[in-house]
Computed example of a mutant assay.
Amino acid sequence: MGAAMTGESNSSGAGKAGSYDTLSILAWVAVAILAVNVSYFVGEEVGGQYFESGADILPLLNGFLIGLLKAGPTIFIACALADFASFFGRCGKGDVFTARNLKTLRQGADSLIWAAVTSAVIIPVVLGWVGEENSRNIFSFTDLALGVGLMGFALHGLASVFEDAIALKDDNDQFV
């Protein structure tokens, strides 16, 4: 009976590692998809400037920077997903309760908060400064921006719990 329980335990541990690896791969796929999305944002702005300006360098540079600005939330979300992909990859290798994973969780949470701030505050303010007619609001708190920001704050809370778990693991490891 004891051997059977050990086999089941190892089997479920291997299953968890596989699911962590799957989550890591899916997160990297999402990062790649978001990279294509960023290229679309930038390409749309640069292409529009190219046809309007006749390939002058300053309008093209302006279009490139505006495209990067508009893609800012997507870039930050891709950074968060890259952090989570690394996190899941390390968990799949058995490195779960580590300071490195805690730092990665906090970085991912920060990236989500920055995505929300960029979407709701920075983009409308900068586009208003440059006189883009589509942006007349100083703030643009959409449901998506609010949800992404709140997920970032929730992940910071989870990171605090994770930090306590690391401290408890370290205490337990000292007794063994």
Rank of each mutant, 00 (worst) to 15 (best):
D110Q: 15
S140V: 05
R90L: 12
A80E: 00
K103R: 14
N37W: 07
P59F: 10
F153E: 03
L127G: 06
N101H: 06
A145V: 00
V130A: 07
L60K: 00
G47S: 13
A82H: 04
E163I: 08
L102Q: 08
Y40W: 13
S11N: 14
V38I: 15
G147N: 03
S111D: 11
S39R: 08
S160P: 04
V126N: 01
R100A: 14
F87E: 03
D170E: 14
A80H: 02
S111V: 00
I122W: 00
A116C: 13
L146P: 02
L127Q: 14
D56P: 01
A120S: 06
W114G: 00
M5S: 10
F51R: 11
F175E: 07
S12Q: 10
A17D: 07
D173T: 13
F153W: 14
A165D: 05
G18N: 09
Y50E: 05
V121A: 01
C91T: 02
S12K: 13
A120I: 00
F97Y: 10
G15E: 11
G43K: 05
R90S: 13
I66M: 01
S11A: 11
I57A: 15
L65Q: 05
D171L: 14
L112S: 01
S11K: 09
A35Y: 01
F84S: 00
A71V: 06
F97A: 01
V96L: 11
I66Y: 00
F64T: 09
D21S: 11
